[in-house]
């Protein structure tokens, strides 16, 4: 449990948000042309990183907007929050 600085609403309790998992997984443009292996990779396989991870969050009980977050999953420390479409921070 932690505070999240929503880029639209400011700092709110984590329980207002829902996590959409790993960020920057791009939906394939032509799913019908993928092999089963490639489709499984897109659909199911995850890095599930212990450490700094890029992930999507939704302010479900607030503005209901999606945004991205950089969080260390080993201590729940948030390093950066950025809007959808913005470039992920390098460090």
């Amino acid at each position: 449990m932690f505070l999240i600085n929503c880029p639209y609403c400011g700092e709110r309790d984590q329980s207002e948000f829902s996590c959409g998992g790993e960020a920057h997984i791009v939906r394939p443009k032509q799913p019908t042309e993928l092999s089963d292996n490639q489709w499984a990779e897109y659909l199911f396989m995850r890095k599930n990183i212990k450490g700094v991870q890029f992930e999507r969050w939704n302010h479900a009980h607030g503005c209901r907007k999606w945004f991205n977050m950089v969080r260390d999953t080993s201590n729940d420390k948030i390093h950066a929050v950025y809007k959808m479409g913005e470039k992920p921070p390098v460090e």
Binding site: S18, I49, E55, T73, D76
Partner: peptide, 8 residues
């Protein structure tokens, strides 16, 4: 469970 990935 918490609804987000965490190793804490």
């Amino acid at each position: 469970t918490d609804a987000y990935i965490s190793y804490t």
